[in-house]
């Protein structure tokens, strides 16, 4: 009992010593009738995800239509909550999840080191994904990407009054107007806080903290606060949520600031202890299929690394946006500093 409790604590002590197995990525696989039959026999797949719940449920719906007889249990929470939960479960020997997906790239480095993932490469990923958007050992691949964007209510703020740059946000006229998600909760915001603190320095956040910003948790939430009209301007938030709200007809406009827009990559992987290994394999391959990726783009507003995905009219293509990339390996040691600085400047 003691040993096990301590192993739980080992998880607690953060990113502990690595014991990774570096192997060659396994050979790509395709969805075969045998795989489909085996998956059907298992009857169910459990998907831990940080994607917006409506998008994830829609995806599950489409999967169920395509492969009837396999139920999808969607467990949606913020990236850090998903991570915390899988950590608690694995350190106590509970294996509920089959496929996992979060928007914090650091997590997958950690899972990989812990040896919690099953390497597998769907044919589609092998054929079409850029090399730096998948794990060289085949443990995970970039299922989705999205930007963390500035956006505003076009009915509450005129276009010429809207900010153009990150620095603009420090203007007194935006005081009381902004909403922002939390890096302790959202992987997307953790990433964006990291890149912006490198780009603009912590003094920037210190000043931003004085703007009386409404603090929410998940990066899905600021766009919803815009939609409600609770605030006129979001400092960060998922681009895909904003796309969906614009599609619903909400008067919201996105700003891609001159300094650049932070990109969050959402990896997906199959867990080693997946209770439904075949269904997991099938679902994992399905996640990277053109169907699923196109759905993510159309309905979910997510960016895809699948080259054949057609972006909707009116959306600024990635190529036209200045992207701020982050390196998970550099972010990882900074997490505690980011959190404590953030609490210092924003109060929570």
């Amino acid at each position: 009992m003691w040993k096990k409790a301590l192993s739980a604590a080992l998880f607690a002590s953060g990113l502990a010593v690595s014991s990774a197995a570096f192997a060659e990525a396994p050979a790509p696989y395709q969805i075969t009738p045998e795989l489909e039959a085996a998956a059907k026999a298992e009857g169910k797949v459990v998907f831990y995800t940080a994607t917006d719940v409506a998008v994830a449920e829609k995806l599950a719906e489409q999967f169920k239509t395509k492969y009837p007889g396999i139920d999808v249990q969607v467990e949606r929470a913020g990236s850090e909550r998903v991570f915390q939960r899988i950590g608690q479960e694995y350190s106590t020997g509970i294996y509920n999840a089959d496929v996992i997906e979060t928007s914090d790239a650091v997590h997958f480095e950690y899972f990989k080191r812990q040896g919690w993932l099953t390497p597998m490469v769907p044919q589609e990923v092998a054929d079409k994904w850029p090399a730096d958007e998948r794990d060289p050992d085949g443990n995970f691949a970039a299922y989705r990407a999205h930007l963390s964007v500035l956006a505003y209510r076009s009915d509450l703020m005129k276009e010429e009054e809207a900010p153009k740059t990150w620095e603009d946000l420090l203007d007194p006229r935006f005081k009381d107007k902004m909403v922002k998600a939390h890096p302790g909760y959202s992987g997307t915001v953790m990433t964006s806080t990291f890149v912006l603190s490198q780009l603009l320095g912590w003094e920037y956040f210190e000043k931003l903290g004085k703007q009386n910003i409404m603090q929410v948790q998940s990066s899905t939430e600021p766009p919803k606060k815009l939609a409600q009209g609770e605030r006129a301007l979001e400092v960060d938030g998922n681009e895909y949520n904003v796309f969906r709200l614009i599609d619903e007809g909400k008067p919201i406009k996105i700003i891609y600031p001159d300094e650049g827009t932070p990109l969050a990559v959402g990896n997906a992987a199959v867990l080693k202890q997946a209770p439904h290994p075949n269904a997991a394999k099938l679902f994992y391959a399905y996640l990277f299929s053109l169907d699923a990726q196109q759905l993510n783009s159309d309905f979910g507003g997510l960016r895809s690394f699948h080259p054949d995905v057609k972006e909707k009219e009116g959306r600024t293509p990635l190529s036209k946006i200045k992207i701020l990339h982050s390196d998970p390996a550099k972010l990882e040691p900074e997490i505690q500093t980011i959190k404590s600085n953030y609490e210092k400047y924003f109060g929570t």
Binding site: A9, F11, A12, S13, G14, L15, E80, F83, Q84, G87, H182, G184, Y185, N212, I213, M214, Q215, V216, Q217, I335, Q336, K339, E343, F346, G347, T348
Partner: peptide, 24 residues
Amino acid sequence: LALPAGFHVITTKIWSLFQFPPRL
């Protein structure tokens, strides 16, 4: 209500200590 207002009370603070990396 307190988190959007930008402050912690002790219960939410304890809860935040469970965020990654947790400080049990």
